[in-house]
């Protein structure tokens, strides 16, 4: 893929993911402000609710893509030493990958243990 094309995908992807994130994060914000789960069981029940499960499974990769494009742009602008930039990007990539797996694992556990007290 040419670098121009990869730039175009990043530009377009940033906007498409932004629309999903705007809607879902507004929902999360309102949900946790007015109707936050009171305990772990309520939290699991919410996560295991199929529409929420689906929305969360989409949310994590979309959020990480959006955050990756954004932080990469910041590093490209402000970190001029290529070696330092590569190390920082590798660190972020590792953290994002771990976060995504962590979040996915949490969803799976919530579904398996949904309805089971404790």
């Amino acid at each position: 893929m040419s670098r121009q094309a990869s730039g175009l995908i990043a530009w377009l992807g940033q906007r498409l993911t932004a629309v999903y994130l705007a809607i879902f994060i507004a929902y999360l914000f309102i949900k946790f402000m007015f109707d936050a789960p009171v305990d772990d069981q309520a939290l699991r029940a919410w996560v295991a609710n199929p529409p929420v499960t689906a929305a969360l499974l989409l949310f994590f990769p979309i959020l990480l893509f959006h955050a990756w494009v954004g932080i990469r742009d910041v590093f490209l602008d402000y970190v001029k030493i290529v070696g330092v930039r590569v190390v920082l990007l590798a660190l972020v990539a590792f953290l994002f990958l771990a976060s995504g797996l962590w979040g996915f694992k949490a969803i799976v556990i919530a579904i398996i243990k949904a309805g089971i007290p404790g």
Partner: peptide, 29 residues
Amino acid sequence: HRVSGVLMVLAIPVGAVLFDQAVSGPQGF
């Protein structure tokens, strides 16, 4: 926009770990 974006990026790993912890059980929550 950039500053807020970077702040939220920093929150991602913490948020993932806290979410996993809160889901795990009463002690974690």
